[in-house]
């Protein structure tokens, strides 16, 4: 099946005072129709940069595109004009951010903000059939109902500060889904929330996506969150994707040493004391990234070649792609 969104060899650098930071080092990623893909990794590995690059939200400069393309519906998003991007943002690719308070304007009521979003998107439509505000409001109330805000017709008059964190995130999800976009990017949508609220939001997100049939790219540092929602998971480390496979394969048979280490580090309820290992060392500085495979200084199974050559993604098993010199050729021969 043809993917909805396909990223090939995306390289992005940032010019900083200390030097050039090699933030994305050749990302390959594809998102199929109705697919749910989780993008996991630790702080600074480039998860959010990838999301922002897709929507072209990175400030240029300091960001600089070195190579690569992002194909959406067969067209390269990186070659679009700003006007064309405006048509895509929110309507075809929408995004839900981490901290709902910073993305809602505190001086406007939820009603004004939702109605603005709905009418702006409708009125930019080619047909020029203007939605009036009354109609937009009706739609806004319906949307709030859909994200399970109680008494939507009353609560729509509230201001963001009158809503709790969970409710604000619901509003943002309502906004993002208002134009039923093909792709929904959720960047750490539950990180600012408490666990009991997180469980509510994840369930809501799951239901809505099932109903609307959007493709989802869920970004999180929490493998547990991703496991709950996604069918496939891509693991990022220091600007590249080291492993990309189905959720089952990732947890049951991870290939990459980093993924193995990461799974070993996570504290779960079943883990006994001292069972969690952690990974030696810290996250590398992306201004002076390690040569070859960027994980080699922390890797327990590093070989000579790891210092010299960057491993390219290999399909070690069917639908299980890993970038590591331990898997030089395909394990299973394709016929």
């Amino acid at each position: 099946m043809k993917p909805v969104l396909e990223i090939t060899d995306l390289k992005i650098e940032f010019d900083t005072f200390e030097g050039t930071s090699h933030v994305l080092d050749g990302i390959h990623l594809s998102l199929g129709k109705k697919d749910t893909l989780g993008l996991v990794g630790e702080t600074g590995c480039g998860k959010s940069i990838t999301a922002k690059a897709i929507l072209r939200l990175l400030p240029v400069p300091p960001a600089r595109l070195v190579s690569g393309e992002i194909l959406f519906g067969g067209e390269d998003l990186l070659k679009k004009s700003d006007e064309e991007m405006k048509e895509i943002r929110g309507r075809q690719i929408a995004m839900v951010f981490q901290d709902p308070m910073t993305f809602l304007n505190p001086v406007f009521s939820i009603e004004e903000q939702l109605v603005d979003v709905i009418s702006a998107h409708s009125n930019r439509n080619g047909s020029r059939k203007e939605i009036d505000r009354k109609e937009a409001k009706k739609k806004a109330v319906a949307l709030l109902g859909e994200v399970k805000i109680p008494q939507p017709d009353v609560r729509i008059k509230s201001y963001p500060h009158e809503f709790s964190g969970g409710m604000r995130q619901r509003v943002l999800i309502a906004m993002a889904l208002s134009r039923s976009p093909q792709v929904l990017i959720a960047d750490e949508p539950t990180t600012a929330l408490d666990v009991t609220i997180q469980a509510q939001i994840l369930k809501l997100l799951h239901e809505l996506v099932e109903r609307h049939g959007n493709s989802v790219l869920l970004i999180s540092h929490d493998l547990g969150v991703v496991a709950k929602v996604c069918r496939r998971i891509a693991v990022m480390y220091a600007g590249s994707i080291v492993e990309n496979c189905s959720t089952e394969a990732l947890f049951n048979e991870p290939f990459h040493p980093y993924t193995q280490g990461l799974l070993n580090s996570i504290l779960t309820f079943s883990k006994r004391k001292d069972a969690a290992q952690g990974i030696q060392g810290g996250i590398p500085d992306l201004i002076h990234p390690p040569s070859g495979c960027r994980f080699h200084p922390r890797c327990s199974r590093a070989m000579k070649i790891c210092e010299i050559e960057k491993p390219s993604p290999v399909e070690a098993e069917k639908n299980h792609v890993v970038s590591c010199h331990l898997y030089p050729v395909r394990k299973v021969k394709s016929f």
Binding site: T196, L202, N252, T268, F269
Partner: peptide
């Protein structure tokens, strides 16, 4: 609270 904690495993 215990059941709301997302568990990092394939079978949810």
């Amino acid at each position: 609270l215990v059941s709301a904690v997302p568990i990092p495993q394939a079978e949810q």
